[in-house]
Design a protein around this nucleic acid. Structure first.
Length: 220
DNA sequence: GCGACAG
DNA sequence: ATCTTGTCGC
């Protein structure tokens, strides 16, 4: 099967087949000490879902000041199918990234990384295509199990699937539902959690994802 | 067959 | 995801 970047319209069967052949690299670290720009990505929808709107915000590290932000709109390609989210969102996200003048060194994505039935959530898929370290930051669970998360900000518990740890359930803010953090590509879970915590300011979501979320939903 | 199910 | 006002709490 050949998959062009611009022909992402696959049948669910082909999409699942492709996922089983793609393997993100979960590594101990990747010279993350040289990071000076972090991006957040999110996708929103307009006109009853007919239009897909991809937003990327690039922040400076450290400092978290906004350096650049772009939006790309295009006709929606696929419906939402749990487990196949990346085929709906990644093409538009790639177009948005191509508009950037300041390429990031690390990317936070709204959705799962390897915390996915076939270990290829949207963050992993996007990381493979961009060849950049990515982190999945999801607001709810797709798969896996975990116990109660302690109440202190920064506390986290592993997300288990069988005997495998596929992510972290992180208390990013007190008295608020925890978020699901997982490696997307080219970093490990500990490093992923570390970066998310470092990018927390005073809200449930880390700055990169929070700002991309607002831009994609054309709020703020 | 019956739920669960990122965004 | 999106449709939507006020309201409870730190």
């Amino acid at each position: 099967m050949s998959v062009s970047l611009h022909e992402w319209t696959l049948s669910p069967e082909d999409a699942i087949g492709l996922q089983t052949r793609l393997a993100p690299r979960v590594e101990r670290q990747d010279r993350l000490d040289t990071i000076s720009r972090i991006a957040g990505v999110d996708i929103g929808f307009e006109q009853e879902g007919e239009i897909t709107r991809a937003a990327v915000v690039v922040l400076e590290w450290p400092g978290l000041a906004v350096l650049e932000q772009v939006v790309h709109r295009e006709p929606t390609r696929m419906p939402y199918i749990p487990g196949l989210l990346s085929f709906r969102e990644v093409p538009a996200a790639l177009e948005a990234f191509s508009l950037l003048a300041l390429p990031p060194h690390l990317v936070m994505v709204d959705g799962q990384g390897i915390a996915h039935p076939r270990r290829l959530g949207v963050a992993s898929h996007l990381g493979l295509w961009l060849d950049l370290p990515t982190i999945g930051v999801a607001k709810s669970r797709l798969c896996g199990w975990h116990g109660e998360i302690p109440p202190q900000r920064g506390d986290w518990m592993p997300l288990w699937d069988g005997d495998e740890i596929i992510g972290a359930v992180l208390r990013s803010r007190q008295n608020v539902k925890p978020i699901y953090v997982s490696p997307g590509h080219r970093l490990c879970l500990e490093t992923a959690v570390n970066w998310v915590v470092r990018c927390l300011v005073r809200t449930k979501l880390p700055e990169p994802t929070r700002l991309a979320d607002r831009l994609a939903s054309r709020r703020g």
